[in-house]
Protein backbone atom coordinates (compact mmCIF):
# COMPACT_ATOMS: atom_id res chain seq x y z
CA UNK A 1 0.00 0.00 0.00
CA UNK A 2 3.03 2.23 0.22
CA UNK A 3 2.99 2.54 -3.54
CA UNK A 4 -0.65 3.56 -3.64
CA UNK A 5 -0.14 6.37 -1.15
CA UNK A 6 2.89 7.52 -3.11
CA UNK A 7 0.68 7.73 -6.17
CA UNK A 8 -1.98 9.65 -4.28
CA UNK A 9 0.72 11.99 -3.05
CA UNK A 10 1.92 12.55 -6.60
CA UNK A 11 -1.56 13.13 -7.96
CA UNK A 12 -2.33 15.63 -5.22
CA UNK A 13 0.87 17.58 -5.98
CA UNK A 14 -0.03 17.65 -9.64
CA UNK A 15 -3.61 18.70 -8.85
CA UNK A 16 -2.19 21.58 -6.79
CA UNK A 17 0.09 22.54 -9.66
CA UNK A 18 -2.98 22.38 -11.89
CA UNK A 19 -4.80 24.86 -9.68
CA UNK A 20 -1.92 27.29 -10.18
CA UNK A 21 -2.08 26.61 -13.93
CA UNK A 22 -5.67 27.84 -13.62
CA UNK A 23 -4.49 31.18 -12.26
CA UNK A 24 -1.75 31.55 -14.86
CA UNK A 25 -4.35 30.93 -17.54
CA UNK A 26 -6.97 33.29 -16.11
CA UNK A 27 -5.34 36.48 -17.40
CA UNK A 28 -4.96 35.05 -20.89
CA UNK A 29 -8.56 33.94 -20.89
CA UNK A 30 -9.86 37.36 -19.80
CA UNK A 31 -7.84 39.18 -22.44
CA UNK A 32 -9.00 36.76 -25.11
CA UNK A 33 -12.61 37.16 -24.04
CA UNK A 34 -12.63 40.93 -24.25
CA UNK A 35 -10.44 41.73 -27.24
CA UNK A 36 -9.94 38.39 -29.00
CA UNK A 37 -6.21 38.98 -28.73
CA UNK A 38 -3.63 36.30 -28.03
CA UNK A 39 -1.17 37.66 -25.52
CA UNK A 40 2.07 36.08 -26.52
CA UNK A 41 4.08 37.75 -23.77
CA UNK A 42 1.96 36.22 -21.01
CA UNK A 43 4.70 33.90 -19.75
CA UNK A 44 7.17 36.76 -19.78
CA UNK A 45 4.91 38.83 -17.57
CA UNK A 46 4.87 35.83 -15.27
CA UNK A 47 8.66 35.91 -15.34
CA UNK A 48 8.73 39.62 -14.48
CA UNK A 49 6.42 38.76 -11.57
CA UNK A 50 8.94 36.17 -10.36
CA UNK A 51 11.75 38.74 -10.47
CA UNK A 52 9.53 41.22 -8.65
CA UNK A 53 9.24 38.67 -5.86
CA UNK A 54 12.98 38.04 -5.91
CA UNK A 55 13.94 41.70 -5.68
CA UNK A 56 11.35 42.83 -3.17
CA UNK A 57 12.06 39.87 -0.90
CA UNK A 58 15.86 40.09 -1.09
CA UNK A 59 16.14 43.89 -1.03
CA UNK A 60 13.40 44.83 1.40
CA UNK A 61 12.95 41.56 3.20
CA UNK A 62 9.19 41.68 2.85
CA UNK A 63 6.95 38.64 2.79
CA UNK A 64 6.53 37.04 -0.67
CA UNK A 65 2.77 37.27 -0.36
CA UNK A 66 3.02 41.04 0.00
CA UNK A 67 5.28 40.92 -3.05
CA UNK A 68 2.34 39.28 -4.85
CA UNK A 69 0.31 42.46 -4.31
CA UNK A 70 3.24 44.61 -5.42
CA UNK A 71 3.58 42.47 -8.55
CA UNK A 72 -0.13 42.70 -9.28
CA UNK A 73 0.00 46.51 -9.26
CA UNK A 74 3.37 46.82 -11.03
CA UNK A 75 2.50 44.33 -13.75
CA UNK A 76 -0.93 45.88 -14.10
CA UNK A 77 0.77 49.16 -14.99
CA UNK A 78 3.26 47.46 -17.32
CA UNK A 79 0.31 45.70 -18.91
CA UNK A 80 -1.48 48.97 -19.60
CA UNK A 81 1.63 50.46 -21.19
CA UNK A 82 1.97 47.32 -23.32
CA UNK A 83 -1.65 47.62 -24.33
CA UNK A 84 -1.19 51.19 -25.51
CA UNK A 85 1.93 50.29 -27.51
CA UNK A 86 1.11 46.88 -28.89
CA UNK A 87 -2.58 46.03 -28.71
CA UNK A 88 -4.81 49.07 -29.12
CA UNK A 89 -3.23 50.27 -32.40
CA UNK A 90 -3.90 46.97 -34.18
CA UNK A 91 -6.74 45.20 -32.40
CA UNK A 92 -9.59 46.61 -34.47
CA UNK A 93 -7.89 46.43 -37.85
CA UNK A 94 -8.57 43.55 -40.23
CA UNK A 95 -6.28 40.65 -39.34
CA UNK A 96 -6.03 42.07 -35.83
CA UNK A 97 -5.76 38.68 -34.11
CA UNK A 98 -2.65 37.76 -36.02
CA UNK A 99 -1.27 41.25 -35.56
CA UNK A 100 -1.63 41.10 -31.77
CA UNK A 101 0.11 37.77 -31.82
CA UNK A 102 3.08 39.37 -33.55
CA UNK A 103 3.17 42.59 -31.55
CA UNK A 104 3.04 40.68 -28.27
CA UNK A 105 5.75 38.43 -29.66
CA UNK A 106 7.83 41.59 -30.08
CA UNK A 107 7.07 42.53 -26.46
CA UNK A 108 7.99 39.00 -25.36
CA UNK A 109 11.36 39.17 -27.11
CA UNK A 110 12.04 42.61 -25.62
CA UNK A 111 11.15 41.50 -22.07
CA UNK A 112 13.25 38.34 -22.26
CA UNK A 113 16.27 40.20 -23.64
CA UNK A 114 15.97 42.96 -21.05
CA UNK A 115 15.83 40.34 -18.30
CA UNK A 116 18.92 38.65 -19.76
CA UNK A 117 20.83 41.93 -19.89
CA UNK A 118 19.74 43.19 -16.48
CA UNK A 119 19.69 40.00 -14.45
CA UNK A 120 21.90 37.46 -16.32
CA UNK A 121 20.73 34.03 -17.44
CA UNK A 122 21.68 32.22 -14.22
CA UNK A 123 18.72 31.04 -12.13
CA UNK A 124 17.99 32.79 -8.86
CA UNK A 125 15.99 31.92 -5.80
CA UNK A 126 15.20 33.60 -2.53
CA UNK A 127 14.85 32.43 1.05
CA UNK A 128 11.36 31.74 2.25
CA UNK A 129 10.06 29.70 5.12
CA UNK A 130 6.88 28.59 3.36
CA UNK A 131 8.73 26.35 0.96
CA UNK A 132 10.40 24.38 3.74
CA UNK A 133 7.44 24.05 6.09
CA UNK A 134 5.12 21.13 5.46
CA UNK A 135 1.50 20.35 6.11
CA UNK A 136 0.11 16.86 6.47
CA UNK A 137 -3.55 16.21 5.77
CA UNK A 138 -4.89 12.62 5.61
CA UNK A 139 -1.39 11.29 5.15
CA UNK A 140 -0.63 13.58 2.24
CA UNK A 141 2.26 15.95 2.66
CA UNK A 142 2.52 19.26 0.92
CA UNK A 143 4.59 22.36 1.45
CA UNK A 144 2.85 25.39 2.90
CA UNK A 145 3.94 27.37 -0.16
CA UNK A 146 2.13 25.00 -2.50
CA UNK A 147 -0.98 24.90 -0.33
CA UNK A 148 -1.13 28.71 -0.17
CA UNK A 149 -0.50 29.02 -3.91
CA UNK A 150 -3.40 26.66 -4.58
CA UNK A 151 -5.79 28.43 -2.21
CA UNK A 152 -4.81 31.89 -3.47
CA UNK A 153 -5.25 30.74 -7.06
CA UNK A 154 -8.76 29.48 -6.45
CA UNK A 155 -9.62 32.55 -4.36
CA UNK A 156 -8.34 34.88 -7.09
CA UNK A 157 -10.41 33.15 -9.73
CA UNK A 158 -13.52 33.43 -7.54
CA UNK A 159 -12.68 37.08 -6.84
CA UNK A 160 -12.30 37.87 -10.53
CA UNK A 161 -15.61 36.16 -11.26
CA UNK A 162 -17.35 38.21 -8.54
CA UNK A 163 -15.67 41.36 -9.83
CA UNK A 164 -17.05 40.67 -13.30
CA UNK A 165 -20.53 40.03 -11.92
CA UNK A 166 -20.91 42.74 -9.27
CA UNK A 167 -18.62 45.68 -9.92
CA UNK A 168 -19.62 48.22 -12.55
CA UNK A 169 -16.34 48.02 -14.48
CA UNK A 170 -16.50 44.25 -14.27
CA UNK A 171 -19.97 44.28 -15.77
CA UNK A 172 -18.75 46.54 -18.54
CA UNK A 173 -15.90 44.10 -19.22
CA UNK A 174 -18.43 41.31 -19.57
CA UNK A 175 -20.58 43.43 -21.83
CA UNK A 176 -17.66 44.17 -24.17
CA UNK A 177 -16.72 40.51 -24.15
CA UNK A 178 -20.22 39.45 -25.16
CA UNK A 179 -20.97 42.14 -27.70
CA UNK A 180 -18.51 44.96 -28.37
CA UNK A 181 -20.82 46.80 -30.75
CA UNK A 182 -23.77 46.64 -28.39
CA UNK A 183 -21.55 47.76 -25.52
CA UNK A 184 -20.52 50.81 -27.49
CA UNK A 185 -24.13 51.60 -28.33
CA UNK A 186 -25.12 51.68 -24.64
CA UNK A 187 -22.28 54.12 -23.96
CA UNK A 188 -19.46 51.92 -22.69
CA UNK A 189 -16.01 53.30 -23.49
CA UNK A 190 -14.77 50.14 -25.23
CA UNK A 191 -11.10 51.17 -25.63
CA UNK A 192 -10.93 52.05 -21.93
CA UNK A 193 -12.41 48.68 -20.99
CA UNK A 194 -9.89 46.94 -23.21
CA UNK A 195 -7.09 48.88 -21.49
CA UNK A 196 -8.32 47.91 -18.02
CA UNK A 197 -8.81 44.28 -19.00
CA UNK A 198 -5.31 44.02 -20.39
CA UNK A 199 -3.94 45.60 -17.22
CA UNK A 200 -5.95 43.20 -15.07
CA UNK A 201 -4.89 40.17 -17.13
CA UNK A 202 -1.21 41.06 -16.97
CA UNK A 203 -1.48 41.96 -13.26
CA UNK A 204 -2.89 38.49 -12.60
CA UNK A 205 0.01 36.97 -14.53
CA UNK A 206 2.44 38.93 -12.34
CA UNK A 207 0.72 37.69 -9.20
CA UNK A 208 0.78 34.12 -10.52
CA UNK A 209 4.51 34.54 -11.16
CA UNK A 210 5.10 35.43 -7.49
CA UNK A 211 3.04 32.46 -6.29
CA UNK A 212 4.93 30.11 -8.60
CA UNK A 213 8.26 31.46 -7.35
CA UNK A 214 7.37 30.57 -3.75
CA UNK A 215 7.43 26.84 -4.44
CA UNK A 216 9.28 26.56 -7.75
CA UNK A 217 12.46 28.52 -7.06
CA UNK A 218 13.91 28.72 -10.53
CA UNK A 219 13.76 32.38 -11.46
CA UNK A 220 15.43 33.04 -14.81
CA UNK A 221 14.75 35.15 -17.91
CA UNK A 222 13.23 32.28 -19.88
CA UNK A 223 11.23 30.85 -16.96
CA UNK A 224 7.99 32.05 -18.49
CA UNK A 225 8.10 29.62 -21.36
CA UNK A 226 7.01 26.50 -19.47
CA UNK A 227 4.11 28.41 -17.93
CA UNK A 228 3.26 30.01 -21.22
CA UNK A 229 2.62 26.67 -22.87
CA UNK A 230 0.80 25.32 -19.81
CA UNK A 231 -1.41 28.42 -19.75
CA UNK A 232 -2.32 28.11 -23.41
CA UNK A 233 -3.12 24.44 -22.97
CA UNK A 234 -5.37 25.25 -20.02
CA UNK A 235 -7.08 28.14 -21.78
CA UNK A 236 -7.86 26.10 -24.87
CA UNK A 237 -8.93 23.19 -22.74
CA UNK A 238 -11.26 25.35 -20.70
CA UNK A 239 -12.58 27.22 -23.70
CA UNK A 240 -11.29 30.72 -24.33
CA UNK A 241 -13.12 33.33 -22.31
CA UNK A 242 -14.54 31.14 -19.54
CA UNK A 243 -13.69 31.98 -15.93
CA UNK A 244 -14.43 28.95 -13.75
CA UNK A 245 -13.49 26.62 -16.58
CA UNK A 246 -9.82 27.46 -16.04
CA UNK A 247 -9.81 25.99 -12.51
CA UNK A 248 -11.17 22.65 -13.65
CA UNK A 249 -9.12 22.62 -16.82
CA UNK A 250 -5.99 23.47 -14.81
CA UNK A 251 -6.61 20.67 -12.34
CA UNK A 252 -7.45 18.20 -15.13
CA UNK A 253 -4.23 19.08 -16.95
CA UNK A 254 -2.30 18.77 -13.69
CA UNK A 255 -3.79 15.35 -12.94
CA UNK A 256 -3.22 14.23 -16.54
CA UNK A 257 0.45 15.09 -16.11
CA UNK A 258 0.49 13.14 -12.86
CA UNK A 259 -1.16 10.11 -14.45
CA UNK A 260 1.25 10.29 -17.36
CA UNK A 261 4.12 10.16 -14.90
CA UNK A 262 2.68 7.17 -13.05
CA UNK A 263 1.50 5.09 -15.99
CA UNK A 264 4.29 5.86 -18.41
CA UNK A 265 7.35 7.84 -17.47
CA UNK A 266 8.28 11.37 -16.71
CA UNK A 267 9.34 11.91 -20.32
CA UNK A 268 5.99 10.68 -21.55
CA UNK A 269 4.07 12.98 -19.22
CA UNK A 270 4.18 16.01 -21.47
CA UNK A 271 3.58 13.99 -24.63
CA UNK A 272 0.32 12.82 -23.08
CA UNK A 273 -0.70 16.39 -22.22
CA UNK A 274 -0.17 17.56 -25.79
CA UNK A 275 -1.96 14.60 -27.28
CA UNK A 276 -4.97 15.19 -25.01
CA UNK A 277 -4.78 18.87 -25.83
CA UNK A 278 -4.75 18.34 -29.59
CA UNK A 279 -7.59 15.85 -29.40
CA UNK A 280 -9.71 18.28 -27.38
CA UNK A 281 -8.79 21.11 -29.70
CA UNK A 282 -9.87 19.13 -32.73
CA UNK A 283 -13.00 17.54 -31.33
CA UNK A 284 -14.22 20.44 -29.24
CA UNK A 285 -12.48 23.67 -30.28
CA UNK A 286 -14.74 25.68 -28.01
CA UNK A 287 -13.13 23.86 -25.06
CA UNK A 288 -14.68 21.59 -22.48
CA UNK A 289 -16.53 24.36 -20.67
CA UNK A 290 -16.93 26.94 -23.42
CA UNK A 291 -20.08 27.60 -25.35
CA UNK A 292 -20.15 26.51 -28.97
CA UNK A 293 -18.77 29.19 -31.24
CA UNK A 294 -21.27 30.71 -33.56
CA UNK A 295 -20.31 31.01 -37.15
CA UNK A 296 -20.14 34.65 -37.97
Amino acid sequence: MIELSAYTQLLVSYAILGGVYGLTALGLSLIWGVMKAVNWAHGDFLMVGMYTAFWTVTLFGIDPYIAAIVAFILLGLIGMVTHVIAIEPVVEKPGGHEATLLTTLGISVILESLALILWSPSPRSYQNVYKNTFLEVLGIRTSVAEAIAFVVSIASIVAVDQFLKRVKIGKAIRAVSQNPVGARVVGIDVPKIRLMTFGLGVGLAGMAGVLVSTFYPNIRPLAGYVWDIASYVVVIFAGLGTIYGVIFAGIIIGITEGLGTIVFSNAFRQILVYVVFLVVLLLRPQGLFGKALRRV
Binding site: V90, G95, L102, S108, V109
Partner: peptide
Protein backbone atom coordinates in the same frame (compact mmCIF):
# COMPACT_ATOMS: atom_id res chain seq x y z
CA UNK B 1 28.98 42.15 -23.49
CA UNK B 2 25.26 42.48 -23.93
CA UNK B 3 23.68 39.22 -24.99
CA UNK B 4 20.12 39.93 -25.90
CA UNK B 5 20.58 43.43 -27.28
CA UNK B 6 20.10 42.26 -30.85
CA UNK B 7 16.91 40.51 -29.84
CA UNK B 8 15.54 43.72 -28.37
CA UNK B 9 16.00 45.45 -31.71
CA UNK B 10 14.43 42.48 -33.41
CA UNK B 11 11.40 42.85 -31.15
CA UNK B 12 11.24 46.58 -31.75
CA UNK B 13 11.39 46.20 -35.55
CA UNK B 14 8.65 43.59 -35.44
CA UNK B 15 6.49 45.82 -33.27
CA UNK B 16 7.00 48.89 -35.45
CA UNK B 17 6.32 47.11 -38.73
CA UNK B 18 3.18 45.34 -37.53
CA UNK B 19 1.74 48.48 -35.92
CA UNK B 20 2.75 51.07 -38.51
CA UNK B 21 3.15 49.18 -41.80
CA UNK B 22 0.42 46.53 -41.92
Amino acid sequence: MIAGLSLILYGVVLLIVVVMIP
